[in-house]
Amino acid sequence: MHPVIKLVVQRLALGLLLMLAVSALIFFGVEALPGDAAQAMLGQSATPEALANLREKMGLNEPMLWRYGHWLFGFMTGDMGVALTNGESIAKAVGGRLGNTLFLAFWAALISVPLAITLGLVAARYNGRWPDRLISGITLATISLPEFVAGYLVLYILAVKLHWFPAMSMVFPGMGVFERLSAIILPVIVLVMVVLAHMMRMTRAAILNVMQSAYIETAELKGLSPLTVIWRHAFPNAIAPVVNVVMLNLAYLVVGVVVVEVVFVYPGMGQYLVDHVTKRDLPVVQACGMIFAAVYIGLNIFADVVSILANPRLRHPK
């Protein structure tokens, strides 16, 4: 087998193993904490009878390993169980909300990724001069802003004071694409704000790292124009680090979504998760945790696979 295929397969297998370990952590980690889900839901003042009833209902009296196996198998076959609070199917509730969240994240990524790479290139090109300084200043400011602060600042200025956009991002089934888009403008702006500076700065660092290689000097000494140097010599070597940067920030975006959805009352996964954390609805929280972790791990695997594929040493072994 070609070593690249072998490495990619290995990486994918490792990802699956990691996912399995994560599921165990999410399941047993919660079990190991003091108190149990039933106690947490009913609070300290619950009567023993109520507690016992709920335990029975939640299946908490079964052996732990059996419950884990049951839960994991259900998860893989699309059955995530039911929410404790209202008895609704979790899978059904997640279905629509996941779509909403991905819609939001997709547009945020679509705007921020090309913008960040372009600006990162500009900053690298003008390394040390004013465009670069401006960018690092803005970066400092935005990494110090938690998502909800950025969210309220944007909301207050653009929606409340200037009345440019609606303050709430209500979306519902049957809404047209254009209406949906106009509803999510504010959360998308906030998400772009939150990841842009980071992504830009890391892109800049990755490009500068490549530009400082000796082979770039070789290319310059061949008399090639700056653009040719970048396109022909820097770019092929910068793909892997830049993809890494993008994936890392998209993973970051996934977390940002949770908070931003709460700020704008957007009916996505994040709001669903936070709602049910407040209600102590463990099955819902575990399911959402698994989904977020899977997206996060998936993005990281993708970045690693691109690195493997882009490495000439691996593609053309001795």
């Binding site: 370990a21 994560v22 977390v255 949770v258 998760l273 929280v285 959402c288 945790g289 972790a293």
Partner: peptide, 9 residues
């Protein structure tokens, strides 16, 4: 491997 916010939630 799990985002810190998610795990803490």
């Amino acid at each position: 491997a799990i985002p810190t916010l998610i795990l803490s939630l």
